Simulated scan of single mutants.
Amino acid sequence: MNEQTSPGTHLVLQHAEDPDIGINAVQSYRLSDNQYFRLNEKNNSDLSKTPELVLEKPLDRETQSIHELILTASDGGNPVRTGTALIRIIVTDYNDNLPVFTQEVYKVSVSENAPINSTVIILTATDKDEGTNAQITYSISKTSENFFTSSFNINPITGEITTKEKLNFENTEHYEMSVQAKDGGGLVAQSKVLIEIIDENDNAPKISIRSLSTPIPEDSAPGTLIALIEVHDQDSGENGEVDCQIIEYYTVYIIIKLFPIYEQ
């Protein structure tokens, strides 16, 4: 019986047989106590009775997948004789449960030097249904597909997200993508994945001379500005901090002063 079967549905049962006749034949039926079914006795034209199960309340396979009832048939003799039968009702699944991700938002960090095809994160979603209704397929949502499928791939079976290309912190520091889990019945759940790219010291400082006074008059006073040098490193944090030194110098002492450059 499907868990979506409507209350009030009648299920005709096999009637009991008794070789006796008249009052000594089967006279009544009784059903064991339970929360979901009641017994109905249908009177036939030959004065016999046919037992019917009537569903009283909605079934839920996820709560109880099997119901076992005892049907008792009694005759009208003295003493009364009875016979019993076990009724085993298996509740079949209906796709009435959405997939559920283990987290509403996943947060993960990955190095910008991670090789192509590196695992970023493995997503997990579950479904209380069974069979094909519980089979989950993972994908990047359509809203994120155009932006992230060039950088990341998601395994539709395992939910593993991997890199498809070399990442670059200097181009993109973080990604925010929507993912979905779809069960075999078409129900969909969504979650969000936040990927932070970790900066690595993969850029050398670049030096440029913004202004230079040459030649230098021999009577130049100490402290005279003769050159303005700009040093820039695309990395961040300590990886972007620079220290300037003069490798070779002559009898003239040159002092280098470092000033921060504020970009608008």
Rank of each mutant, 00 (worst) to 15 (best):
V231Q: 01
G83D: 06
Y106V: 13
L228H: 06
N171C: 12
Q27Y: 00
I207T: 09
D202K: 00
A114R: 06
A85P: 02
E41Q: 13
N113A: 10
V193G: 01
S213E: 13
E263G: 07
E145L: 10
K182P: 00
K206L: 08
N146G: 13
Y262Q: 10
R81D: 11
S151L: 15
P205N: 11
V12R: 12
E263W: 06
N133S: 11
R88Y: 00
H232C: 08
Y138K: 09
N203E: 09
E230S: 10
I161T: 13
Q35N: 12
L228Y: 02
V188K: 03
L194T: 01
E200P: 00
G131I: 12
E200G: 00
A134M: 07
H67P: 02
T9S: 11
G76R: 03
L11M: 14
N97I: 01
T5C: 10
H15F: 06
L98D: 01
D60C: 11
D199H: 02
F259W: 00
V110E: 05
V252W: 03
N171S: 15
T102I: 04
S32R: 00
E52Y: 04
T9H: 09
P58Q: 11
L31M: 03
Q64R: 15
S213Q: 14
T158Q: 06
I229T: 02
P99E: 05
I246A: 13
A134Q: 07
S109W: 12
D46A: 04
K164C: 08
D202V: 01
H10F: 13
N201K: 03
S45Y: 08
S213T: 15
N34M: 06
S28W: 00
I255W: 00
D233P: 11
T172M: 14
L69C: 10
Q4L: 10
E3D: 07
E248G: 03
K164S: 09
V100A: 08
L39K: 12
Y94P: 00
D75T: 03
Q35I: 07
A227Y: 02
G240M: 12
K107A: 07
T163H: 07
I229C: 01
A134F: 04
I87Y: 01
Q135S: 02
S151G: 14
A73L: 03
S211Q: 12
A16G: 13
N24H: 12
L59I: 14
S28M: 02
E173V: 15
D183I: 00
D20A: 15
I121E: 09
T137N: 09
L69D: 11
H10L: 14
E145T: 06
R210F: 06
I216W: 00
N171P: 04
A16P: 08
T63G: 07
L13Q: 08
Q35L: 14
E241Q: 15
